[in-house]
């Protein structure tokens, strides 16, 4: 029955989708910045010798990875008011995305740091560098390059995950699709347009990831085996 597919209705709702697209884009950017902050903190804790820092970070990462984002989102959405913290849905959504993605970002950065060979660290030690000098001058600049592609991969996951915020009625892309579907009983028009918008974001990020990889390959760094 898709012969009734109405492009005209989509055009009518275009401003709403434009608004949703922009909302998804900027709330993803803010959440990703939050995820980086959370991830770097967790990773720094995880790499310490002190168990008092290491263990909480590990537990946090495991708990986040073993539970669904939707349950985490509801945990904050229904739980925060209970603690007397009343926040707009949008803030709760951004908080949930940052806390969730942060755990994955922490693992990506950790893998990047651990991928730097022992010999690099030893070269730093042998030339008399302190721990922080070795980190700053030798390890982190190399780890940074290794982590860019997987971090962009995580950004793609985050953009898609942000669709769940529509379930706590944040106005974003998926919500726009839902509105069109329920106002006009046109789910096909609503959700196909939504999907197309996400695909545009996906291909944008994918192109960015591919070109970053090419850029990193062109820079003659070559991992020494």
């Amino acid at each position: 029955m898709l012969e009734n597919f109405s492009f005209r209705t989509i055009t009518e709702y275009l401003p709403l989708f434009g608004y949703g697209f922009a909302a998804t884009l900027w709330l993803s950017i803010v959440s990703f910045a939050g995820a980086l902050a959370v991830g770097i903190t967790l990773c720094a804790m995880n790499l310490q010798r002190s168990q008092a820092l290491k263990v909480p970070a590990k537990i946090y990462i495991d708990v986040i990875r073993a539970t669904p984002l939707l349950a985490q989102l509801y945990f904050l959405y229904f739980g925060l008011p209970r603690l007397g913290v009343v926040l707009p849905e949008l803030f709760i959504g951004i908080l949930a995305l940052s806390l969730n993605s942060g755990a994955y970002v922490a693992e990506i950065i950790r893998a990047g740091i651990l991928s730097i060979s022992r010999g690099q660290v030893e070269a730093g030690i042998a030339s008399g560098m302190t721990y922080f000098q070795r980190m700053r001058l030798v390890v982190l600049p190399q780890a940074f390059r290794v982590t860019i592609p997987p971090l962009l991969g995580q950004a793609i996951v985050l953009v898609k995950d942000s669709a769940l915020l529509s379930l706590i009625s944040v106005s974003e892309l998926t919500r726009a699709g839902q509105l069109l579907a329920s106002d006009r009983f046109m789910p096909a028009e609503g959700f196909i347009t939504t999907a197309a918008c996400y695909l545009a974001l996906y291909y944008g990020l994918k192109t960015l990831a591919a070109s970053s990889e090419r850029w990193l390959r062109l820079r003659p760094t070559g991992n020494l085996k």
Partner: peptide, 24 residues
């Protein structure tokens, strides 16, 4: 695969649940 990887799972569910019936 690209189509599925590029869209949120929530949207995929909505598409399947609401659109397949329209196709009969």
């Amino acid at each position: 695969v690209d189509l599925i990887r590029g869209t949120p799972f929530l949207v995929q569910i909505f598409l399947i649940f609401f659109i397949l019936p329209e196709l009969g």
